[in-house]
Nucleic acid binder design. Structure first.
Length: 153
DNA sequence: GCCAACGTTGGC
DNA sequence: GCCAACGTTGGC
């Protein structure tokens, strides 16, 4: 089992939205970054745990936990010309983008802010701490546990 | 809303 | 296949 961090803009789709979704579950569409796609395609397994991170908002932070309930499937929005996620260079015969399905697990006792993560010397590998552009990134078990501990402080 | 960082595109 | 230009992301 592996650990991941998924970014989402809470104005578009928040942890609460996931919690309130049918079966507290959603297909994580709209990933249009090759590195993130490759993580989903090559490494992500059903049962993997996922930090939900709110970005582009007042207090960027890890806010909760989800889990992967279904592995990579073709993201249908890439073929929908009216969607923001439309990709004219992709075709159903040779789809370029995929997504996984995740289910809500829990909200953290308190959010762990980007600021706190950056200030934490024990966290060194997390991609979030370096360049923040990746929408899906791996989290080591050590850092996963560390962020969980921080949420209980 | 600004702007730095970085991923992607496309001309050569 | 390089690399400059461009577009996007995301923290502040």
């Amino acid at each position: 089992m592996a650990y991941w961090l998924f970014k989402t803009e809470p104005d578009a789709y928040s942890l609460d939205d996931l919690k309130n979704a049918p079966e507290q579950s959603t297909f994580w569409e709209g990933i249009r970054n090759y590195q993130a796609r490759n993580f989903m395609r090559d490494q992500m397994q059903v049962g993997d745990k996922v930090f939900i991170y709110h970005s582009s908002c007042k207090v960027p932070a890890v806010v909760g936990i989800a889990k992967v309930t279904e592995g990579a499937q073709t993201d249908p929005y890439q073929f929908d010309a009216s969607s923001d996620y439309y990709d004219p260079k992709s075709s159903p015969e040779n789809p370029r983008w995929i997504g996984v399905t995740v289910q809500y697990v829990e909200q953290l006792p308190s959010q762990v802010t980007l600021k706190a993560i950056k200030a934490e010397d024990a966290i060194t590998e997390l991609a979030l701490k370096k360049a923040g552009r990746l929408s899906i990134m791996p989290v080591t078990e050590t850092e996963w546990l560390h962020i969980i501990a921080m949420s209980k402080r």
